[in-house]
């Protein structure tokens, strides 16, 4: 499980996250909604330390991530090697296409296992094929990203994240750059992951999809979680005025 406590993050003078508390249980899917600029991406990037944060604590299965407090009370980042090891327990897929264009689809998926986890070639290839089959792209294995549709690229990106055997998957609006007719195939892949009971944090504007796959939905506004509850609570019985306003606009 993941426990986020009092997470704060500023860019210069702009306070983007103002004390986030969030627990994610094993096998739980939490959807993160909120208007543009409220800090959803920043929160995901802090969780896997693509972004440093100012105060607060993130634990994964009890282990404190990213920072250590010295006996003197000073806060220090863990070493780069430590951070790499920790990061491998998480997979992230971004909104923009982010495959490595010069590598085949299979090599994209293999890169992490081969060069970050030092898995043998044969083992990594077997894993890569299995994951690509799972996202329905085994046939495109030796193609290059430029030859794939946006939906297919995002499915490969999911396979690449899964190849690290992560405990949690962070998905940042992974369908919002796609043509509408390609959204379904990517959502299908996410649905198929539910049976694996992998933790997921899903940033999305697709409220219908959030209702369907998420166990809980968190509504983020101005860098804080304003309301958190079951999809029915958040989407059908919202309490916070700004959430009501947000839902009215999105629908």
């Amino acid at each position: 499980m993941i426990a986020v406590r009092g997470l704060q993050k500023s860019f210069g003078t702009a306070r983007v996250l103002r004390g986030i508390d969030l627990d994610i249980a094993d096998g739980e899917v939490v959807a993160l909604i909120g208007r543009s600029g409220c800090g959803k991406t920043t929160l995901l990037r802090c969780i896997n330390f693509l972004e440093e944060y100012d105060t607060g604590e993130i634990r994964l299965d009890g282990e404190e991530l990213w920072y250590r407090t010295t006996p003197g009370g000073a806060r220090r980042r863990v070493s780069e090697a430590e951070a790499r090891r920790m990061r491998q327990q998480m997979g992230i897929v971004f909104q923009q296409y982010n495959l490595f264009p010069h590598m085949t689809v299979l090599d994209n998926v293999l890169l992490g296992p081969r060069f970050a986890q030092r898995v043998s070639v044969a083992e990594a290839e077997a894993l890569g094929r299995r994951l690509l089959a799972r996202v329905g792209l085994e046939a495109k294995m030796s193609g290059y990203p430029a030859q794939l549709s946006g939906g297919q690229q995002q499915r490969v990106a999911i396979a690449r994240a899964l190849a690290m055997r992560p405990k949690v998957l962070l998905l940042d609006e992974i369908t919002s750059a796609l043509d509408p007719e390609l959204v379904g195939e990517v959502e299908d892949v996410i649905r198929s992951l539910l049976s694996d009971r992998i933790m997921m944090v899903l940033v999305t504007h697709a409220l219908g999809f959030a209702r369907e796959v998420a166990h809980r939905i968190a509504y983020l506004a101005d860098g804080a979680i304003v309301e958190l509850g079951s999809p029915a609570d958040i989407l059908d019985r919202p309490k916070d005025p700004s959430l009501k306003e947000f839902l009215r606009r999105v629908r």
Binding site: N48, L50, A81, R87, G91, G112, M164
Partner: peptide
């Protein structure tokens, strides 16, 4: 970001 996220040194 993608390279960092898969733990590449």
């Amino acid at each position: 970001d993608a390279a960092r996220s898969i733990g590449l040194a």
